[in-house]
Design a protein around this nucleic acid. Sequence first.
DNA 1: AACCCACATTCCACTGAG
DNA 2: CTCAGTGGAATGTGGGTT
Length: 410
Amino acid sequence: MSMGHSKASSSAALKRSRSPSADRAVAPASPNTNAAVKSILNSRKCWRSLKGKEEPVWPPQLEAALIEGLERYKPSESKSTRTLGRFPMRNKFVADHIFETTGVRRTPKQVGSRIQQLRDTQSGKQILKVISDRHYEMMHPHRASSSRGGAGTAACALQNSGMMPTLSPSHIWVKTLPASAAWRFGSYPPSTGDLHSSMPRPLRLINPTVTFSSLSQAPCQSIFTVYRHGELAHQEIAPVSITASTSGPAATPCWLYSTTLVPKYWAHLCDAEDPTSYAVHQEVMRVPLSTHAPAPPLLSVCYHFVHGGAAPPQHSPPPLSPRSSSGASDASSSLSRESSPTYPHDVDAKPYAFPGGAGASPLVFAPYDAGSPASPLDLRAASVGVDGWSYGLQDSFGACDPIFDPYINL
DNA sequence: AACCCACATTCCACTGAG
DNA sequence: CTCAGTGGAATGTGGGTT
């Protein structure tokens, strides 16, 4: 029988190499997808490259797009779906999704092959099981989810299996202009979910000092990973300074943690004509770093740069099903509630109610005071914010809830 | 040399349109 | 009924590791 598929990638994979950045190279994606992808990446032992190229066949960003595509896929009602337990057009959907999100073409056959591989790994099996369980439930909504172990997300599978690797990042969108652009005021209404800076500026006009707060003091450092077009571009560790503040709720003393965003790379970002091609992932880790029992980061944030005049991508970070189907950013989703790891923490996790912020909101984004254009990229408690936009964290230190669905308070 | 692993290719069962 | 299209299991391939 002739194959009905286009020939899968004529360039057979001939080279293997160590992960391009397997330890932490996860392209910025949905926090939940990130968790799943991280687990998959952690279980990978080596990477094959396309023939004649250094490019891996399934680099982290494609892996993320694949998982994301699987999450987004909704099976159509068909006989084959019901009787065979198959998912019609799933591989094609995923292949298209990969192309749409990464610009890289992978054939449905390659997708199928990769999925087959994933099924052979423990973490991949868990992830695929949860995803396919949800697909089954879409086709058989009357069946109780418990019969198949419950529907959820790939990340949920990891958490349930105790494999949740790390805290998933919050996402912050920084409206920016090309390096050569003249700075002008402008704004657009925020979309849902994540944080957005209030006005577009060239990066060089932003002071890259990031400040956040906690009710307790713990020495830590920032690990920055810079991605360009989803590819690892730079990595560095930066110190975090701690200062005392008395501006907490009801005059509760708290600590302000300050760090510079990618200090060795910031100038490079400022010079970039298209800063939107970059994303910066920050993880704040307790120091000294434990060598025998790797701790999850205290804080994980992805900074995205978007064109000032344009609305930020609605799909990035791509929401996962079932959240994607509703389009809602739901901080109380079952996922977020179920996903708190049990890592023992010794740091306070008390809420910090910022002025004007919702009591339950993990993040508070305070309005910009347009009076001072010397604007640092100021991520700090609203009560001490001077300029730019303010950013506060609740429950972040030690709580490690992977979902920091922020409230935007503009 | 044997083994492992990532990925490609082949084969098969099946659906659905014509 | 035929056949194109599809998903998935089985098998093949080739480079790295032991």
